[in-house]
Computed example of a mutant assay.
Amino acid sequence: MNTSADLLKTPLHSLHLELGARMMAFAGYDMPVQYPMGVMKEHLHTRAEAGLFDVSHMGQILIRAKSGDIRDAALALESVTPVDVAGVAPGRQRYGLFTNEAGGLSDDFMVANRGDHLYLVVNAACKHEDLARLQAALSDSCEIEAQFDRGLMALQGPEAESALAAYAPEAEDMRFMDVRELSIAGARAIVSRSGYSGEDGYEISLDADDTDRIARLLLSDERVAPIGLGARDSLRLEAGLCLYGNDIDETTTPVEANLKWAIQKARRKGGEREGGFPGAERILGQFETGAERTRVGLQPAGKAPVRAGVELFESDTGGTPVGVVTSGGFGPSAGNPVAMGYVPTALSATGTQLYAEVRGKRLEIAVAALPFVQSTYKR
């Protein structure tokens, strides 16, 4: 069991304690799960105004081709991901997936074209494995640089643009998935217009020494509140976004996970760079034949949340499980419980009636369209 003394600390750790955060162990770090405002109010504040999240536990990695040509770096990265990395334009980023030889998902990530190098943000719990994977596969042609000591914050919500533009006016000109280097009150930052909440907003990468000062500056705006991991989870669930380790993992293919959109035409059958990534045969085969199971949204009929791990049935009595909930809870903006999980593809149509077994009782739950709350990205 980890004690707080054993856990790693982000550059904002002292600020979290000063703000009265309730801390918890997450991916080896001491992280804020909530502040005195509480999870529900933090969630609703992000949807209405702006929330500031510490995501410095995530892994930031740079990839440079030894040839100096970023296309060489992109093509090298394509050997471990089904994503069209070479098609990412300078100043843009794309959602990516690491796959294994069985077609399962080893992690998901964001990759940006920074002009002369690629910039990746990977999940905290997987970052050391991801770094080792990249070093093993790309070191002959690329230089891999881990920047695990940098700060990373997410500023999310309808007031995020105005709050950031007060210190970096160029932020207003960015659109969803743009990535730029900006000066924020004199601090050099790599900023992407993206996030994990379904709201418009930014992710801001800073030197560790600048992170606390810039966080305090942003929080000095009365519209910006500190937000913990609890509300981050409910926000992403309402937005229909996957959590690695819950909704996707080593046993889940991109097709099963309903992430076919993340594999562009260039990497599919008939594409100019078809296959060539781990698990390509199984994954591309499922594009043609379909998968036996599919990730779907799930809408419980009552007010009781249905949590991860709950089994799903076709009948209200008897029978064997046909699916499982992978994420679930109360959606503060939706105003009711929301969930995601896997069901047989034959039962994946919106409106299909199923039953969730909670504490020995079968509760009605229906397949629902995702997202539960419409995204507000600036496109």
Rank of each mutant, 00 (worst) to 15 (best):
T3N: 13
D6N: 11
L8W: 01
S14V: 05
A21P: 08
M24L: 08
M31D: 01
P32C: 08
Q34C: 03
Y35L: 02
P36V: 09
P36R: 05
V39Y: 06
H43R: 12
H43V: 10
L44I: 14
T46L: 13
A48N: 12
A50T: 11
A50P: 11
L52Q: 05
S56P: 13
H57S: 11
A65D: 02
A65L: 11
K66D: 00
S67A: 04
D69R: 14
D72H: 14
A74V: 08
L77D: 06
E78A: 13
E78Q: 15
S79T: 15
S79M: 08
A86N: 06
A89P: 07
R92W: 03
G96F: 07
N100M: 02
A102N: 09
A102I: 03
G104L: 07
S106M: 09
D108M: 06
F109G: 03
R114N: 02
R114L: 14
D116I: 01
D116G: 01
D116F: 01
L120Y: 07
L120W: 07
V121K: 09
A124K: 03
A125C: 04
A125M: 06
D130I: 08
L131V: 02
A136W: 05
A136Q: 12
A137D: 00
S139C: 00
D140E: 15
Q147V: 00
Q147P: 01
F148L: 09
R150T: 04
R150H: 03
A154E: 09
A154Q: 04
Q156G: 03
G157V: 06
G157N: 07
P158K: 09
E159N: 05
E161C: 08
S162N: 05
S162F: 00
P169R: 12
E172R: 13
M174T: 09
F176H: 13
F176K: 00
I184Q: 12
A185P: 03
A187M: 10
A187V: 10
A189Y: 07
S192I: 09
R193G: 02
G201S: 13
I204T: 11
L206I: 15
D207H: 14
D209N: 08
T211E: 01
I214W: 05
I214M: 10
R216E: 12
L219Q: 04
S220Y: 02
R223D: 11
R223K: 15
A225N: 04
G228L: 10
A231V: 06
R232K: 07
S234T: 15
L235M: 08
L235N: 09
R236G: 07
L237V: 10
E238N: 02
G245V: 11
N246L: 13
D249I: 14
T251Q: 13
T251P: 02
E256P: 07
A257G: 10
K260N: 11
K265W: 01
K265Q: 06
R267S: 03
R268W: 03
R273W: 09
E274L: 07
E274Q: 15
E274A: 14
G276H: 05
F277L: 12
F277D: 13
E281P: 02
R282A: 13
F287T: 04
G290K: 03
A291R: 05
R295L: 15
V296W: 04
Q299V: 10
E314A: 12
V324G: 04
G328M: 11
G331M: 12
A334K: 15
G335S: 05
P337G: 00
T350C: 02
T352Y: 03
E357P: 02
R362V: 00
E364R: 12
I365Q: 07
A369T: 12
L370Y: 04
F372A: 14
V373K: 03
Q374E: 11
T376L: 01
